[in-house]
Design a protein around this nucleic acid. Structure first.
Length: 233
DNA sequence: GGCCAGGTGTAAA
DNA sequence: TTTACACATGGC
């Protein structure tokens, strides 16, 4: 279905390359890393951010990550050792801070014991290692694989579900894996494509269609109609 | 003041 | 297998 790529083209034309995942501190690389390789600290910051952003606005996550950077705590060994209550206070702005502090320590401990985890060749293999960790569900696992390990897997989030169910490509309660397959089967497996597709979907959803079933002024309204013509008659 | 935010784990039906 | 609920701050 070329329409899946067509939707990306439109969103990309409007929002451009957003160069996710935003990372901090490495000034020369912030906010974009222009093709340069991520360093290990940045990769781990992405892992931390993926936990912290669960059901939370990124603005609040930035404050928490700022605090962690200030204390030089974007470091698996340090996070694995830190007092959980102190960690909770540092990440407080990101919400659910008690829960996330506990889970961050679990994930940090895992990274201490599996330092080369992100170098795992097989994507399904990496996913299977990440998913059993408490605090890492499908979206967080896929975000880590796509943005920290830079391997091509499509991240599904609430926005993606909302946009594509409203366009008529899936039901509102579609499963994570099912919607993921829609993208994986209809796009070339390319890290940069998957990266920016997810990013522009989030950007688009933030700006549009919060409540209306489908905005008449949404730039994807044509795609909605054409899909219905093709598949819903 | 209410709703929402780049979800997940757990327990009960 | 599905559904309900706890977790919590901050922006609008």
């Amino acid at each position: 279905m070329r329409i899946i790529l067509g939707i990306y083209s439109k969103l990309c034309r409007k929002y451009g390359s957003l160069n996710w995942w935003p990372t901090t501190l490495e000034n020369e690389l912030h906010p974009k890393y222009h093709g340069k390789k991520l360093n290990d600290r940045q990769r781990f910051e992405i892992v931390v951010g993926a936990i912290l952003t669960q059901n939370t606005a990124w603005k609040n996550v930035e404050k928490a990550i700022f605090n962690l950077n200030r204390e030089k705590l974007i470091d698996a060994k340090k996070l694995a050792k830190i007092n959980v209550k102190r960690l909770a206070q540092l990440i407080r702005p990101a919400g659910y801070y008690n829960q996330k502090a506990e889970r961050l320590k679990i994930v940090a401990d895992f990274f201490v014991n599996n330092p080369d985890i992100l170098k795992t060749k097989s994507i399904p293999g990496l996913r299977q290692k990440l998913l059993p960790i408490k605090g890492i569900g499908p979206e967080t696992a896929d975000s880590i694989i796509l943005y920290a390990a830079e391997k091509p897997i499509f991240v599904i989030d609430a926005y993606t579900k909302r946009i594509f169910s409203r366009l008529g490509f899936c039901k509102e309660n579609v499963s994570y894996e099912e919607l993921q397959q829609l993208f994986m089967k209809n796009l070339r497996h390319d890290t940069k494509l998957f990266n920016n597709y997810h990013a522009v979907l989030v950007e688009h959803a933030k700006n549009n269609c919060r409540k209306k079933p489908l905005c008449n002024d949404c730039l994807l309204r044509r795609e909605c109609r054409s899909f219905k013509k093709l598949f819903c008659k």
